[in-house]
Amino acid sequence: MTKDAQAAIQFSHVHYQSGETKILNDITGWFPKNHITTLVGPSGAGKTTLFRLCNGLISPDSGEIYIDDQKISSYEPVALRRKVGIALQQAVMVPGTVRKNLALPFELQGEELPEETAKEMIRLVGLDESFLDRNAKDLSGGQRQKVSIARTLVMKPEILLLDEITSSLDRVSQQEIEELIVRINETYQTTIMWITHNLKQALSIGEYTWVMMDGELVETGESSLLKDPQNPRVRTFVKGESE
């Protein structure tokens, strides 16, 4: 990682287990502020769990997580979740229109979503304003993902966590979302962490990358490390994914 970058999120010896199963084992590392970092690794590596920890949906069994150099446990939960937005692979929609979905973060605070913000966000994710009145259940997979990202963005999070948001999309939709994420990063200086299975995507979009395996952080650095990994396990993984 570059030495002049500030840490948006830092992990110090973080452990997390579910029942008897260790999900995260002694994670120590950091995500640089205002940059795009990708997380790659096989299924079951603990990547989603790491995101859930950052958004405060779960807490580590031991170790510390710092957001902007402040312990995550010292944040008030609602404030933390608005600072660290998360968009999940399933892109769950609440019943109703796209507008209702976009307004959800405002409604939860007892506020109304300004019409201008709704229009700005829907345009930002590459959909036209007519989508605001569409029923969310009628959207395609790609459109749902875009609405899910827009819904997270209306909170204006400083950190955006994206969990395999393009894995079930066609190539065109994938490319649209990749461009969107880069645009968001450039426009709002949002720190972005992106879980992806697509190593090409990690190389082209991510400035930095984390490689996780079996609940451990096995390699981290600039994305170019994926071209020539030093760790033999990572080399095997990259080779397998590229074939």
């Binding site: 958004n55 979740r81 937005g85 609440v94 959800l104 973060p105 939860l108 819904r151 997270t152 909170m155």
Partner: peptide, 8 residues
């Protein structure tokens, strides 16, 4: 989802 968006 609602918790992650800052809901109680």
């Amino acid at each position: 989802l609602i918790l992650s968006l800052g809901g109680t």
